[in-house]
Computed example of a mutant assay.
Amino acid sequence: MSSILVTGGSGFIGSALVIALLKDGHSVRVLDDNSRGAPRRLKEVAKDIEFIAGDIRDPALVARAVRGMDEVNHLAFVNGTEFFYSAPELVLDVGVKGMVNVIDACRSEGVGSLVLASSSEVYQTPPQIPTDEHAPLLVPDPTNPRYSYGGGKIISELMIINYGRKFFDRVLIFRPHNVYGPDMGFEHVIPQFSLRLKGLAAKHPAGKLPFELQSDGSQTRSFCHVDDLISGVMVMRAKGEHLGIYHVGTTEEITIADLARRVAAHVGREIELIPGPAPQGGTERRCPDIAKLGKLGYSPLVPLAAGLPATVDWYWAHAELAPRA
């Protein structure tokens, strides 16, 4: 089995991947500064991993973390739509410097296998739905801070592919699509809907709850449970081709309005949807074509109806962990 470094390994997806790699028999080292991650996510495997605390932007630290590894899985990035708008310079600083440091460290330490977590945000407004891996990557407006994240992921993909041709034995890229699950962070739609409903329910013990939306709620997403995401990544790692790019997600498309109704129904309340202004640069529809990874054996098993209740329950039970304004 391999020795594998996971950058961003205490993050939501990173920690789930760490656990899966350990179960697969690998030796795992984690690099994270816990600025977005949380040690609690790795509590059950803390004795089974080596943890290096530090910033992905520190080249000497990254080189030390890569040393002695057979493979690097690079997930360290600043995620969360709130941060795209509030701290775009940080998003790009972490994303671009982190990718440069990981590539340089792999080359200097002789590591030939590199896996990158990209994002569905690289498409912004996909030209077709479902969207396959050949859709053009796009930054439609560099002055819009939202595109700091998608732009950083595009830069990362360009770097890993072009360095991969000459300097790596195996490079793989996966593009997750709206991954969710318990303890996924607080800057995403499902946690925000869950906690807003909790607050509204406390203020209004009876009757319909007034629930504000960004835009009219007609936008669609295809939510992929973290267990399915990790299943897809493990299939890709086992069977993916060098320089291959793979979507990981589900084809179950749902409107944001319907998502809000489902969250409310789970907690036994009805809501009155109140349309609001749309965020600049938002995507109207997002649903991946997963046929490429499906040919390798990937098949998502957790529909939203099965995965959403436990996610909402987790946020209602852990509302005190939410960052304070």
Rank of each mutant, 00 (worst) to 15 (best):
R237M: 15
A206V: 14
V235I: 15
L243E: 04
F223D: 02
A257M: 06
D228Q: 03
Q214D: 10
L243Q: 06
G217K: 05
H204L: 05
Q214H: 13
F211V: 01
P277Q: 05
E272H: 03
A201E: 09
G207C: 01
Y246I: 09
P277F: 05
L200M: 04
K203L: 15
E212C: 00
L229Y: 12
L229E: 14
A264P: 07
V233L: 10
A257V: 08
D258V: 07
P277K: 13
I245C: 12
V235F: 09
E270H: 05
K208V: 05
Q214V: 02
G249W: 07
T251F: 01
V233Y: 02
L195R: 11
G249Y: 10
I256H: 11
P277Y: 06
L197N: 09
P275D: 11
E253H: 00
G268R: 05
R269H: 09
A238S: 13
L200N: 04
T251E: 15
F223G: 06
A206P: 00
A264H: 10
G232S: 12
P205M: 06
G268E: 08
A265I: 02
R261Q: 14
D227F: 04
H204Q: 11
A201G: 00
F211G: 02
L229W: 02
A265H: 13
T251V: 13
E253A: 15
R262V: 06
I254T: 13
G199N: 13
L243W: 08
A260Y: 05
E241C: 02
M234D: 00
G199A: 11
A202Q: 14
A206K: 13
H247S: 07
S231M: 11
L229P: 01
R237L: 15
D216C: 03
S218K: 13
Q280A: 13
I271L: 03
L229Q: 13
R262W: 04
M236I: 15
M236P: 04
T255A: 10
I274T: 03
Q219C: 05
Y246F: 14
Q219G: 05
